[in-house]
Design a protein around this nucleic acid. Structure first.
Lengths: 217, 217
DNA sequence: CAGTGTGAAGGGGTTCACAGCG
DNA sequence: CGCTGTGAACCCCTTCACACTG
């Protein structure tokens, strides 16, 4: 391999932070800012500057001592770190409001995620249009995943349907799942599963409000 | 205070886990399971049983040695821990697909979150119906929050509008914010802000797929 | 005697402090 | 001289192992 970084040694907590760094850097790029220091980045993210430098250090040396980081170069490097230098084929399963919201989200395509299909089980929804895509029948999910080399499935179906839908995607050879349904999906070898939990977020806020806390998490 | 638990000493990582425990317990309750052990819970969550017991221990002693936990009782106690024994008034700001998806989500009301208003800035959307609520003008947000004692705002507007919208909510005296817009909101004293980041989730999957990892995060 | 509750050990992640370098 | 890159210290969290109890 050209790049010899050992991603296995990257702390789990670092990965989502890289994504946040990238967002701020894109903003700086749009504003034609040529370079930043870790201190400036830290202020914009209210994070710790050493943390940022440490996170970068798992992947290489991206900065110039005494100067800082060149914004465009850093964007390129971090994108590579996150695997965004390749195209990922993505399907959304569940064409409800949440699925449609995600289908429309611009940020995905800009980072190399190609939405190639959207699926639903309701015969009233199958065949309707969502952006440029026509909603397909969930029954065809496995076949579609296999034939179109889909890497990632975003699951936005109701809880009771999620496990079945995940099975179909895995059957088709899916490699990664982002699951918005509030159920734990059974593990499958070689499949990376990430659980996202919207109602948990509200409960976390409830917890911190019910004492007299402030701050931010 | 009746309850003398010091919530300040609860690890941050414990809080979202409590919410997940609660979900599994609700499922057990629906299935008329009267009691569980920490081991059984751990299997259903693929977590560590000691972790679960430790998490509970920050709040009290909820189990019976040699037996386990009574499901209904445990649900009640954990709900209190998370502040779900009170009603929270919630507004959604941004009546796009994501806002509508959240407005419709059943799980919120069941845990004591009362959706009392939904707001948007577009004159084409203001006045339309979302479930039983009529979409109101964003300009009235501060006033509405103040007059209706709204505790929590869920922000689902586009990135460039989020900071302004948050200011209005804070002006009205909001106590907590769940922000789905991909921008950092400025801190405000006495306001708890929780950032939720949908595109970050996809990038995390991308990272783990771009090496040859499996597992789950 | 099964399963909780918890001190203590261990591991992972964050922060510090400074050496290294442009 | 300023800012990066990083070993080491520190801290928080997880896990272990077992005393305790119904």
């Amino acid at each position: 391999m050209a790049n010899s970084i050992d991603k296995a040694k990257v702390p789990q907590a670092t990965v989502p932070r890289l994504a946040r760094y990238l967002r701020v850097l894109h903003k700086l790029e749009r504003d034609n800012v040529p370079k930043v220091s870790s201190k400036e980045l830290a202020e914009r993210l209210d994070a710790n500057a050493a943390q940022i430098r440490k996170d970068f250090s798992y992947f290489g040396e991206f900065g110039v001592r005494g100067v800082g980081y060149e914004v465009k170069y850093l964007i390129g490097e971090l994108s590579k770190c996150l695997g965004l230098d390749q195209e990922w084929n993505v399907v959304i399963v569940g064409a409800g409001k949440l699925g449609q919201a995600l289908a429309r989200y611009r940020g995905f395509r800009e980072e190399g995620f190609r939405l190639v299909g959207i699926f639903d089980s309701s015969r009233y929804v199958i065949g309707t249009q969502v952006d440029e895509l026509v909603v397909q029948a969930e029954l065809q999910l496995a076949e579609f995943v296999r034939e179109n080399k889909v890497h990632i499935a975003i699951i936005t179906v109701p809880a009771q349907a999620a496990v079945l839908v995940a099975q179909r995607a895995i059957e088709g050879g899916i490699k990664g799942i982002v699951n918005f349904a509030p159920v734990r999906l059974p593990a499958a070898p070689g499949v990376f599963i990430r659980q996202v939990d919207l109602s948990t977020e509200l409960m976390v806020v409830s917890f911190y409000l019910s004492q007299n806390a402030q701050s931010r998490v």
